[in-house]
C-alpha cells in the first residue's frame, strides 16, 4: 500500500508523468507545442552582445558561485542556465564578440560548461573563438567567486553581463560592479529569496520561472519546450487544489485531514 501522507504526492506524480509523456510525445513527433511568448530579457542578450562590440568590451556570463548544482531540486535552474549559456556563446560567435565565462564552484560543472561552450562555437562554425583563458574558474566559495568576477569587470571591462541560474547573496556584488563599469545587466533566478536583488539591479529581468521559459525558448529543443508545457499542467492542478481547498474550508471541511492522507 502507499505510504500514509504521500497520496497527494503520488497523484501529482502520476499527473506529471502523464503530462510529460503527452507533451514529449508531441515534441518527438514534431507536432505543434504551446508557444512561449517573447521574453524581453532574451531579446536583450542580442542587444547587449551588439553593444559590447560597439564598446569594444567583452560579454560576461555567470551562473552563480553555486550554479552548477546537479544533485538538488535546483537542477532545473542549472539546465536552464546552460541553455542560455549556449545561446549567448552562439550569439557571441555569430557577431564576433569576446565572451568571458565565469564557471561555478561545483567542479562537476567545469567540463559541462566547457563542453557546452565548445559545442556552441562548433555549431556556429567558429571553434577558433574558444579561448580556454576566457573560461575562468574561481574556486569553490562565493567569497572568491564574487571578488574575482567583480575584479574581472574592473580589469577587462564589461559590455553585457548575463547572470542566470542559482544565485544566493553572491549576485549582489557582481551586479553592482557591472553597473559601475557600465555593463548592461541581464539576469534572474528562480530562487524567490534573491529575486529582489535581480529586480533592483538588472536592466532586463528574468523573474522566477521565466528563467525556465527562457532556457527552453533559446534551446531550439522541442523536448525542453514540452517540459514547460508539462509544468503548466502541474500548476493548474495546484491552482485547482487551492481553489477547491478554499471552498471546502469555507464550508467547514477539515482540509488538514484530507491533505494528511
Amino acid at each position: 500500500m502507499i505510504r500514509t501522507g504521500t497520496y497527494w504526492d503520488f497523484i501529482l506524480l502520476v499527473l506529471m508523468i502523464a503530462a510529460v509523456y503527452y507533451y514529449m510525445d508531441k515534441a518527438l513527433k514534431g507536432k505543434e507545442l504551446p508557444r512561449i511568448r517573447t521574453i524581453p530579457a532574451v531579446e536583450a542578450i542580442y542587444e547587449g552582445v551588439g553593444r559590447s562590440i560597439e564598446l569594444d568590451k567583452p560579454v560576461h556570463f555567470a551562473m552563480g558561485a553555486s550554479g552548477g548544482q546537479l544533485h538538488t531540486s535546483l537542477v532545473s535552474m542549472t539546465l536552464a542556465a546552460l541553455m542560455i549559456l549556449r545561446h549567448t556563446v552562439k550569439l557571441c560567435a555569430r557577431l564576433g564578440s569576446r565572451l568571458i565565462i565565469h564557471i561555478p564552484g561545483q567542479t562537476e560543472a567545469i567540463p559541462l560548461v566547457e563542453g557546452i561552450a565548445r559545442d556552441a562555437y562548433l555549431e556556429e562554425g567558429k571553434p577558433e573563438m574558444l579561448r580556454r583563458d576566457d573560461m575562468r574558474y574561481h574556486g569553490y566559495a562565493s567569497t572568491s567567486f564574487t571578488q574575482a568576477v567583480a575584479g574581472t569587470y574592473a580589469r577587462e571591462g564589461v559590455g553585457l553581463n548575463v547572470m542566470v541560474g542559482i544565485w544566493y547573496t553572491d549576485c549582489v556584488m557582481p551586479l553592482e560592479a557591472s553597473k559601475i563599469y557600465g555593463g548592461l545587466n541581464v539576469g534572474g533566478t528562480a530562487r524567490w529569496i534573491m529575486a529582489y536583488a535581480f529586480a533592483m539591479m538588472t536592466d532586463y529581468l528574468l523573474l522566477g520561472e521565466e528563467l525556465y521559459a527562457a532556457g527552453a525558448a533559446v534551446s531550439d529543443n522541442p523536448v525542453m519546450v514540452s517540459g514547460i508545457a508539462s509544468e503548466e499542467i502541474g500548476k493548474y492542478f495546484v491552482l485547482l487544489l487551492l481553489i477547491v481547498g478554499l471552498v471546502l474550508m469555507a464550508v467547514g471541511v477539515n482540509m488538514g485531514s484530507i491533505f494528511a492522507m
Binding site: M16, V20, S73, L79, L82, G115, A190, E231, G234, K235
Partner: peptide, 28 residues
Amino acid sequence: ATIAVGLAAIVVGLRTLAGREVTTIEVR
C-alpha cells in the same frame, strides 16, 4: 516560486528517467 521550482525539478527528473534529458550527457 517554490511550487514552480518543485514542478520543474519533477519534470527534469521524469525527462532524465525517460532518457530525454540530454543537456548533461550530449556535450563533447
